[in-house]
Simulated scan of single mutants.
Amino acid sequence: MKEHTILRNDWTREEIEQIYNLPLLELIYKAATVHREWHNPEEVQMSTLLSIKTGGCPEDCSYCGQAARYHTNIKIQALLPTETVIEHAKKAKEGGSSRFCMAAAWREVRNNRDFDRVIDMVKGVNELGMEVCCTLGMLTEEQAVRLQEAGLYAYNHNLDTSEQYYEEIISTRTFDNRINTINNVRKAGITVCSGGIIGLGETHGDRISMLLTLATMPKHPESVPINALARVKGTPLENNEKTDTWEMIRMIATARIIMPSSMVRLSAGRIEMTDFEQGWCFMAGANSIFTGERETLLVTPNPGVSEDLQLLKTLGLKPMAKEKNNVLESEI
């Protein structure tokens, strides 16, 4: 299965630039080839993302409607009851999702009753046999250990953009803060979910820089979400142009080639894509999507489960079977 492409963490900027700038169809062909070496090309992991605490965030991320300082239509919602979250997870599992992600609009995790409740949610979702993922903001090593002990499988913390462009998008924390949290997650033995957003006004060079940071980590993120900016009314980036889908495909294909073992997730922006465009993204190496009803990381619309299952069927794809804990179960 893994005969030709080797995993590398020593990529140079020039090498990634060369791949990124290949003629598009050549790039897609190379990416599709790598994808088939490392993954079953017929399977797509379906992940469901639920906003467990919405809005009121003190950060100033220019793309996000949940920042308290922007006037958007997003309603502030306190942390959901644990039972409600578990019900959502059960429904997601029934719909074919094998990963359940819980997002809270916090700047950082605080050691309080809310975090205790998140720990209970992690335990509850883990007992359903799903991969459980959280995105809760900045995290200390001790907090990461608590989440790992509760059964957390993955932690999402996107780089968003390049280190050079980061301060143009966010001023309330630094790029190094992002890297520190990712390092804390790694040390705790939790898998890393980290990618970025295109369409923020960044250059192609910024996109290449972001991919370089991810691909030269000591261990590649197990999951790499590629997001197109979801333009939220009331945020500083609401008037940015719609991200061109070919640009998304170029990013997905480059990520697939340089991080061959990672799941590459086609994330925000899917609602504005046709089935044809999504099909090209899968061809270029995307093998994971967020599905569900309205809940996504940016609290923006998302295609429904039935639409996604129909799309996969049309393309001859199927939801990825749940593999987590199989070894343990077979030994019992």
Rank of each mutant, 00 (worst) to 15 (best):
D116Y: 00
E42L: 15
T172S: 15
E26R: 05
W280N: 02
W38A: 14
S306G: 11
K53I: 02
S171R: 05
I249D: 01
C134I: 04
Y63C: 03
M121Q: 00
L80C: 01
I6E: 13
W246Q: 06
I6P: 10
K219R: 11
T33Y: 12
E167S: 15
I170Y: 09
I289K: 01
M102G: 06
I289N: 09
N227H: 07
M1Q: 12
S47A: 14
R173T: 10
L25F: 08
P58Y: 03
S62P: 02
Q66F: 11
E87L: 06
P81F: 00
M273Y: 02
W38Y: 15
T48P: 10
L49F: 12
V109M: 11
I208Y: 01
Y29S: 13
V232F: 10
R69W: 08
S97L: 06
P319Q: 14
I289A: 13
T54H: 03
F276L: 10
T191V: 09
R117C: 08
L25P: 01
L266S: 04
Y70D: 09
E323R: 14
P81W: 00
I258D: 12
I28F: 07
R231L: 12
G205P: 01
I190F: 05
M283C: 11
V122Y: 07
R270D: 02
L22V: 04
N158A: 11
R250F: 09
Y20N: 00
A67E: 14
L315R: 06
R207V: 07
Q77W: 01
I74Y: 04
M102Q: 04
M121E: 00
Y155I: 05
L212G: 08
W38H: 15
N239Q: 15
L298E: 07
K313Q: 14
E17W: 00
K187P: 01
